[in-house]
Amino acid sequence: MRCGDFKDTYVRDEAIFQSVFVKVWLALFLVCLLIFPFLANEYVLYIVNLIGIAIIGAHGLNLLTGFTGQISLGHAAFIGVGAYTSAILITRVGIPFWWSVPMAGIMSAFVGVIIGIPSLRIKGLYLAIATIAAQFIFEYVFMTWESMTRGIRGINVPDPELFGFRFDTERKFYFITLFFVVVGTLYARNLIRTRVGRAFIAIRDRDLAAELMGINLFRYKLTSFAISSFYAGVAGSLWVSFMNIVTPEHFPLSLSIEYLAMVIVGGLGSVLGSIYGAIFMVLVPEILRFGTDFIKDIPAFQHIFAPLREVVFGALIVFFLIFEPRGLAELWRRMKNFFLLWPFSY
């Protein structure tokens, strides 16, 4: 029972791990995560890897949109920049995977800052449209800059290696994903309690008030874009090495929208929300696939999966926005609070 958990200092209130109880459970959870790949089959691990990569990307978008309040419909473009940077560095320059990840992140961050510059003059709807424009322009660049990206033929990327150990299966790659997810989550969780993170939240709540209180909007908005795109770049870089191929079709506007959906369904402005949202949005199509397997044999319903996925995807966004705008994170919090003192809730 945690009902006697009172915080008497700000340090404790702001702690990443709120209590011993939380620490113990998280340690146990981490152990489970480490054992998990030896029990699961390749298909499950494939999905889990995708979830991990989505979590990293969603963290980035949540920092930008959920915490700083800057709407971005161009997240897929940043992921694409990271993916291509990583692929080109590995195949052309011969840099090992481990170095290409941070470099992809830095390259994406650089591009993100450039895209973020309009955010200093415009916001809300207009920023959303500016980022859509960026998305389309980058899609075009991936497609036409053949000398660098090889256009629609794409680039094949080898598996990562460490001291002669090849991460060539889903099971081996899982550990890479897990490492980056844990580091990324801890960094995001820590960031929002620092000066920078609190500045982000202040900008989201009221930018003019934030500026009056001495927060340099120019600096912090661009910082937010940079950190967000860095996450996107890392996600893209992992994705490339996991899939072993990258083509321009992998980063359409619909991917940006999917990431926004993850952040909204999970919970805007919540680190845990990004995780829940990513898991949920990756799992939903898979569950649907199983669901539609039964009716697959009826000829009329053979091609129902793709459109049905779209309908469910849209319906989920609409449903959450209308009925639970603070997302799964809030649902989870309410459920926890209910069971905390259950059955003596009153």
């Binding site: 926004l260 909204i264 459109p307 779209e310 469910v312 995807f313 849209g314 319906a315 966004i317 609409v318």
Partner: peptide, 12 residues
């Protein structure tokens, strides 16, 4: 986002 969700529903 709600209009984007709507567009996805209509498309599907």
């Amino acid at each position: 986002m709600v209009t984007i969700g709507l567009s996805s529903i209509l498309k599907g």
